[in-house]
């Protein structure tokens, strides 16, 4: 039997139904992430505001930013906050993970407890901590007074406020670090530990010579996501200090919010946003690299 036609590469592509499946999600991603990222960049070269017609201002916003002492302080505060949160969070997370990676009584209960702060909404956490830090009736100062120590104005003293926020952030974040470290610990084969124990290595040596080095890629990855996350701190400051006292807790995102929504200087806010965005993107790219190398 002869066939009339000899088709070349028949394909069963599902283009249209695939696009239909993707369309809603892609429209949302476009509107909520892609377009805003592009818009931020464009707006940062304008003086867009509700108060007057929009003009192109070139790099004026960025030049202003360089000279803006308030912004400089916000950057310094953000870096202080980020460093202050990131390292203790990772250290506590690693300790908790190592402790709970073995069959301790109540292992799951401990793990759930350490993870509860992560689940708590930022505002609820901020409100509770604002109460703990309350200078007159707060439990913390009450306890200090009870012990005969001097109560301190935790959130009202410019030299203490940012560090007080840092303590709360560590409380809230170390559960995340613990979970990620636990995942990393599960990837270390048991026989490595057994070999080390047979060689007579004491526990602290095993920890520093085996566990810590073998977790290094997890540590780097965690470092990056914590930096990215803490860089964007906003809610806690909005609720607890409003950037004060004396601008000592003013951070980049908080100032960006103020600039855009309190002073309606959207163009200037967009320039801040672009700087923040590029900084975070750089860290994210490094993080992705590390993650790929780890998986690879």
């Amino acid at each position: 039997m002869a066939f009339e036609q000899k088709p070349k590469e028949v394909s069963f592509q599902q283009n249209w139904s695939a696009y239909a499946f993707l369309a809603p999600a892609l429209v949302i991603l476009f509107m909520s992430l892609l377009l805003p990222a592009a818009a931020t960049l464009v707006m940062s070269f304008t003086d867009v505001s509700f108060l007057h017609p929009t003009n192109w201002v070139g790099f004026d916003n960025y030049i202003k930013l360089l000279a803006d002492e308030k912004f400089g302080q916000a950057v310094a505060n953000t870096i202080h906050y980020t460093l202050g949160v990131t390292f203790p969070t990772m250290a506590l997370g690693m300790l908790a993970a190592v402790a709970l990676n073995r069959k301790v009584p109540g292992r799951i209960a401990f793990r759930t407890i350490f993870y509860l702060p992560v689940l708590t909404s930022l505002i609820a956490a901020a409100v509770v901590w604002a109460y703990l830090y309350e200078p007159y009736a707060g439990p913390l100062n009450n306890a200090l007074a009870g012990l005969g120590l001097t109560p301190r104005p935790w959130l009202q003293d410019p030299s203490l406020a940012l560090n007080s926020l840092i303590v709360m952030a560590i409380w809230r974040d170390f559960g995340t670090a613990m979970i990620i470290y636990l995942a990393g610990l599960q990837d270390i084969p048991n026989d490595v530990y057994e070999a080390a124990r047979l060689d007579g290595a004491p526990p602290h040596k095993i920890f520093f010579r085996i566990t810590v080095p073998m977790l290094s890629s997890v540590t780097f990855y965690l470092l990056i996501i914590l930096i990215v996350q803490t860089f964007q701190v906003f809610g806690a400051i909005y609720v607890m200090t409003q950037g004060g006292p004396l601008g000592s807790t003013e951070t980049v995102v908080y100032q960006m919010y103020q600039t855009a929504f309190a002073h309606t200087e959207f163009g200037y806010g967009a320039a801040m946003s672009t700087v923040l965005f590029l900084t975070i993107l750089a860290f994210s790219l490094i993080g992705t690299r590390i993650m790929k190398r780890k998986d690879g």
Partner: peptide, 29 residues
Amino acid sequence: MQFAGRNIVFALVVGLLMVPAQSQIVPVY
């Protein structure tokens, strides 16, 4: 599904994973 542009769309999704939402409050508004 097999469709033209699949790899590009996937790369876009992975790329957008890294865009920090908080830095977008002004344009999203």
